[in-house]
């Protein structure tokens, strides 16, 4: 098991490396002139040349990539070149924004908090509601509760996040006045639990609806499949009561695949929920990434992509290890 985890971690480093290279060369190869962004309003050719030289934009791409990676590989970080002065960027160094000159690592660190609260809260919401509803539907297969949940799930899967978000804002904030307009100051629990929940409740619902619907369908389908398995028939043939058959034998097998998918979905969300963050003006990774994309701020884009990829790959590993603990067939083979 230990060897397996080490091997997976090495694999993760390799994949992240590949992603960093692909991302860097794709983005830095764009014609958007980064120096133009830095030198600002009174720009002339000399200024641009100056900026290019001091930031190293003149160097071949491979050299620039090497320099970029040195900040991630070198535990001491690296020195960022700028006009007339050097700036230390400690590990893990992701360069600095072309727009505002802030170090990308710092901007990302600030943005991770809100995204974390948004993603985990929504994840709990969709996991609990999806699994419960799916389970009830499977156990009442063909009855009205099943039909209702199948219908609800289809509705939820088809409801576009962008529409839902604005709809909720309109109903609960604009017209209903039940919740205050979002205030960025409440985006962490340290602001007090009530404002915190008031801040996040609508974003959580918005973000969770589609996945709750998907999980309902998945749980229902898995549970129905599992209840048709031979080992369920065996459990009944032993004389076990229906409750034990369902909860001890059925549920465990049916929920195992959901653990996998849940980990991957959560991992993907930790990289930023672009639409929800934009609708509710949450200053998270998603907002950071869309702002940097629209502003051609390549170092920030690069940084956010790398962090998001890290979460995805890391979630993959966590899920695989977790799966091995749940399923002895994986653990012991």
């Amino acid at each position: 098991m230990f060897n397996y985890i080490v091997r997976r971690l090495l694999q993760m480093v390799l994949i992240l490396f590949a992603i960093s290279a692909i991302t860097f060369f794709l983005f830095w190869a764009t014609p958007a002139n980064p120096a133009l962004l830095i030198c600002g309003k009174d720009c002339n050719t000399e200024r641009i040349a100056e900026v290019n030289a001091s930031y190293g934009f003149d160097d071949p791409l491979i050299v620039q990539y090497g320099r970029y990676m040195s900040g991630l590989v070198n535990p001491g970080g690296r020195e960022l070149g700028s006009e007339g002065s050097q700036e230390h960027c400690s590990w893990p160094c992701l360069d600095r924004s072309l727009q505002n000159g802030l170090q990308v690592t710092d901007s990302i660190a600030d943005a991770i908090g809100p995204t974390f609260w948004l993603a985990t809260g929504a994840a709990v919401l969709w996991l609990v509601s999806g699994v419960l509803l799916g389970l009830l539907a499977a156990l009442r297969k063909g009855k009205w509760l099943d039909k209702l949940s199948v219908g609800l799930a289809l509705f939820g899967v088809s409801f576009p996040t962008l529409v839902l978000g604005y709809l909720l804002v309109f109903v609960f904030i604009v017209k209903g006045g039940l919740l205050p307009y979002p205030d960025q100051a409440n985006s962490s629990p340290s602001a007090g639990l009530v404002p915190f929940f008031q801040f996040y409740i609508l974003p959580w619902v918005t973000l969770a609806l589609v996945n709750a619907a998907l999980y309902t369908r998945l749980t229902r389908a898995n549970m129905i499949d599992t209840m048709n398995e031979d080992f369920i028939r065996t459990a009944r043939a032993k004389g076990l009561g229906e409750r034990q058959v369902v909860f001890k034998h059925g549920l465990r097998a049916a929920l195992t695949p959901i653990v996998t998918i849940f980990g991957l979905d959560l991992g993907a969300l930790l990289g930023g929920a672009v639409i929800t963050e934009r609708i509710f003006s949450i200053q998270g990774l998603g907002k950071l990434s869309i702002d940097s994309v629209l502003g051609n701020d390549l170092p920030v884009v690069m940084g956010v992509v790398l962090v998001a990829a890290f979460f995805v790959v890391f979630a993959n590993i966590v899920v695989d290890v977790l799966y091995a603990f749940i399923d002895p067939r994986v653990r012991l083979s």
Binding site: E229, D230, F231, T234, A253, T256, D327, P328
Partner: peptide, 9 residues
């Protein structure tokens, strides 16, 4: 088929 008839977990 005892493999599928016994609970794998």
């Amino acid at each position: 088929d005892p493999l599928s008839a016994m609970h794998p977990f």
